[in-house]
Design a protein around this nucleic acid. Structure first.
Lengths: 151, 151
DNA sequence: GTAATTCCTAAACCTAACTTTAGCTCAAGA
DNA sequence: TCTTGAGCTAAAGTTAGGTTTAGGAATTAC
């Protein structure tokens, strides 16, 4: 057993499948907060395995790290989260997922319209919808189509 | 009217809503190929408006630029694409969209299972599925969970 | 007790998809 | 004609989400 109780970062990495560097990065982003042993090394609780697992799932669902941090803020910080706590924030994830699915379904309908007429007429297409944040990355403002009537 | 026929890059930018810099970038990525006027400036065809619109839509659907280039390769290069040509490649897009939607629906089912038991037990969750490439970016191997049984 | 691991920090590097900047040329209007 | 607005290229900067590297310090294994 280790000098001070708790998991080392390497052990946590093995348990979650994450790289050690990724775990440190998540800490820098405020997603996880280990304590330090007398020698200055990070020590984690067993509950942190679940916490990081949650992070990975949320990422699959397309949430950004800041968004995930928000969701995790719904957990109690004065005690180890219970299954009920996890259930609660997982339901928030579910809502997020539903929204993404709805968006894609709407895009699909719109695309069908475009395919139907063969004209690829943009104003009918989904791009007008400013709520569609399916666009993951890329920096700067890419304001979505003013018009492209093909004159 | 311009010295040599065709749209200037600025005009194309106005018609599509894209930034001039983005259009040049797409050219560097092989998504569009203007010709040059005697002064060395880019000139575009009207059909290029539609081409760029297609690029924007495909991006909304989550395709990367290399993937979009592949799809666009399905257009004829010896003549201006007809509505039928666009329809054909749009249907490829539709298949791609369907796949993304299926993936998310599957994720949702899995999440429901996790919420149901409240345990957030990872092996039951979606992350085991190596086909889920919903994960857009980030470099290097982030091998998805070996195990996290919370022992 | 010492060698081999593991961990630490800070800073640099990576990819995708662009934007910004610098310095210069082309084109269009009065 | 001359000025101003577009355009050109090449290179550097940006964001997200990490990884890699460098140079030490703490732990663990023998």
């Amino acid at each position: 057993m280790p000098a001070s109780e708790g998991l080392s970062i390497g052990a946590l990495a093995r348990r979650t499948g994450l790289a050690v560097s990724a775990i440190r990065y998540y800490e820098a982003q405020g997603l996880i907060s280990p304590w330090r042993n007398p020698g200055g090394q990070r020590r984690y609780q067993r509950a942190d395995i679940r916490r990081l697992s949650f992070v990975m799932i949320a990422q699959q669902f397309g949430l950004t790290l800041p968004e995930i941090r928000e969701v995790l803020a719904g957990l109690p910080d004065n005690r180890t989260p219970t299954p009920a706590d996890w259930k609660k924030i997982s339901q928030g994830l579910r809502a997020h997922l539903d929204q993404r699915i709805d968006t894609l379904l709407r895009l699909r309908d719109n695309l069908d319209g475009c395919i139907g007429c063969g004209c690829l007429s943009l104003p009918k297409c989904a791009l007008y919808n400013p709520d569609d944040r399916a666009k993951a990355h890329g920096s700067g403002p890419r304001y979505l189509m003013g018009d492209a009537p093909e004159g």
